[in-house]
Write a protein that binds this DNA or RNA. Structure first.
Lengths: 405, 405
DNA sequence: GCATTAATTTCACTGCTCGAAAAAAGAAGT
DNA sequence: ACTTCTTTTTTCGAGCAGTGAAATTAATGC
């Protein structure tokens, strides 16, 4: 049933995709350079770029190169994305805020609005109504007739259902079970994609650090939750939910601390901000997690632990231990060469590192293959947004522009 | 650098591969049926089969279909693999025996030799010398001039090194670190592939149960070791070590029972035969594992537990708990729709099932998506051999015959 | 024998890539 | 100003694989 037949059409699509992919990864470049990086002949590059230009997907840019040294010969004409070819709306849904960004096909941020959220937000209004209102506003504020909005991409937390159009469970109150994905498809008549935050993290890390672009990486977010995304030799295999995990809800201690998800003993229950806080103040493990921990409080705790406060430091040790054993257990199934710690918790990496390393050392894979490189990345470069952006633009490249018309 | 360029050559390879794949999966069939399953046009099928026949890779078989009902029209001519197109040597290296099988391109077992092994075997002779001698013998015993031996595939246990040509660690004594893979390549001048047993298990399960062919499955071997292979929506992604895991050496209890690998608290240390035995007889957890447990002893223990022996039953409960929590933790990273338990331990499934289910229930993914289907398969159908066979033949199909010449 | 039916093959055509040669666009030298 | 280089792009004629439609082949049924 599956039609993997290859014909001249699929050849064209593949090679167009290759060209668009090269431009996306390495930025604008000359046709000759494109031939070099893609491996296609100059003749084909000419044909492909000609089509792409005719369709308004890419455009010729300033013929300038670098008047650097003596540059003999015909100067190269750079080709790059036509920013007006498409626009995408990117939505980041978080526990305490929703951020909507409008970006163009060149990846430039056009506009952005931010709206605070609270646990009651989606009780008062439905996610569908909220998103339609916000998206319509964002769109109207940037009326640009020639630029078609092509996609809506939403970063969410929780567990997606089979077809990836809604959430089966989410730490964001009243979000699970609402079919807002399909509602938006219907209302706007556009492709809408939901992405797990952890997965975007992995995608973002890949784009932000060129050295990791083709490596196997596990990116761990530590903060109000614990999440993880994986890339395998540079690939986030296929579409759908792959590369996303429920790392934060991997069991750490059977029947252990109470997690926000309602289960007991999850990694998150020890390593997310509320878990550390609970342990630092010797609150019983079975106490219901605080709904939200102010960032200052969490950072204050880090400062105290770094200043030598025993109970605070101990809480971070426990967090490191939970993350470390979680990673050690993951390594038995999937062993990345790099592990990235990002999010607010990255600041506490120093407090957790020893325990993480110790736990990793208890994995046979690590003893044999050596420990993976574990590094903490401060969050400032916004891997989630970057991941959402690149993922969405890449989808437009490949699905819409390499495919038809 | 990566050349993913598509041209008419890659089109041909892809479609040839499609045809060979259809024949491999569904067996011999008529050209019309091939067109149907592959999605290629009749014209292309004619061209492709013509080439394949000219190269002696496939052949026309008896024109008979079923003279069943009234069969009007031109009778279909079945096309199927030419058994003499190739032969492969399959080696299964185990702790206590080596089994070498010679198979033809049609997948028919031509000859097989079995040699007992013991922990000293590879001290007395090197793995290289042993394998060369055995393989040469097997080959000479089946001198068939027209049938070229194309591949040697070896099933091993342990951790492969980066390029998959030798073992960095293995429970088989004196096997790790010996470059027998490359030695065999050099001696026979053939492609040699090493495969983790767990991975073959997954491959085999896929071929033995058609219903699982396109599902996501984790196949767990329980016996003298605990191993696992995974398939993801029918794909064992790419080549190399993927789909293989070190599930048996996933940490279950920090600083827990001593495992054969030297680490402490591995799943295997509770769930492999030696672990169960140790617990059944209340031998301290830190006692060095027995080098090999006779199958009768293990099966006797199962019988006693089933007959109501408390300590034996308890040991199997602990084993189930270890496997269950291991699976539960794996599910946070990779959640298959089916879990298969195979190997000698499958017979004890009833004794472990309650604990396995209980542990799985503690995973958030299971609470949300429901428990995966967990079933035990007796070993009689030899998933490892089947996996090794199909993996190797498929490689010949795709790499040698869909590719060049 | 002739009509009917179903499997294959043949044929003319399309679309894509490729290598080689030609054209284009400046820089450098005289 | 003109010619010679040099490097980038485009043009041109193959070559190849796939496709749909029409033709051919090989049996059955009457």
């Amino acid at each position: 049933m599956a039609r993997n037949v290859s014909d001249s059409d699929s050849v064209r699509r593949q090679n167009r995709g290759l060209v668009l992919g090269a431009l996306r990864t390495q930025g604008e470049m000359a046709r000759t350079a494109l031939a070099g990086t893609t491996g296609l002949s100059h003749a084909s590059i000419t044909a492909i770029t000609h089509d792409l230009i005719a369709q308004g997907i890419v455009q010729e840019l300033a013929t300038v190169e670098k008047p650097d040294a003596r540059m003999r010969g015909r100067p190269a004409t750079l080709v790059g994305f036509c920013r007006m070819a498409a626009a995408a709306a990117l939505v980041e849904l978080d526990v305490n805020r929703a951020r909507l960004s409008l970006v163009d096909y060149g990846g430039v941020l056009v506009d952005r609005i931010e709206t605070p959220l609270n646990p009651a937000s989606f009780e008062e209004t439905t996610p569908t109504a909220f998103l339609i209102e916000r998206l319509t506003y964002l769109r109207s504020r940037n009326a640009a007739p020639g630029v078609p909005l092509r996609r809506i991409a939403i970063s969410v937390q929780g567990i997606l259902d089979r077809d990836g159009m809604s959430l089966k469970w989410s730490p964001i109150a009243h979000l699970a079970g609402k079919p807002f994905g399909l509602d938006l498809v219907e209302h706007f008549g556009l492709p809408v994609t939901l992405h797990k935050r952890g997965r975007l993290l992995a995608e973002g890390a890949r784009w932000l650090d060129p050295g990791l672009h083709d490596a196997s990486v596990a990116t761990v977010f530590v903060g109000s939750t614990v999440a993880m995304g994986m890339t395998f030799r540079g690939q986030i295999t296929g579409r759908g939910d792959e590369g996303a995990t429920e790392f934060g809800h991997m069991n750490h201690v059977p029947n252990g601390a109470l997690c926000r998800c309602g289960m007991r003993g999850c990694v998150e229950a020890y390593a997310a901000d509320y878990g550390v806080l609970r342990n630092a103040y010797s609150v019983p493990e079975t106490t219901l997690p605080a709904p939200a921990v102010p960032l200052q409080e969490y950072e204050g705790l880090i400062a105290r632990a770094e200043a030598g406060d025993r109970s605070a430091a101990h809480a971070f040790n426990l967090a490191g231990r939970a993350i470390g054993f979680g990673l050690s257990r993951m390594m038995a199934v999937f062993d990345p060469s790099h592990i990235l710690i990002v999010g607010p918790g990255a600041r506490a990496f120093g407090l957790m590192q020893a325990e993480i390393t110790a736990a990793l050392s208890s994995a046979l894979v690590c003893r044999i293959n050596g420990l993976p490189t574990v590094v903490a990345h401060r969050d400032e470069k916004e891997p989630i947004f970057k991941g959402l952006l690149m993922k969405t633009l890449t989808e437009i490249d490949q699905a819409e522009f390499a495919g038809l018309v």
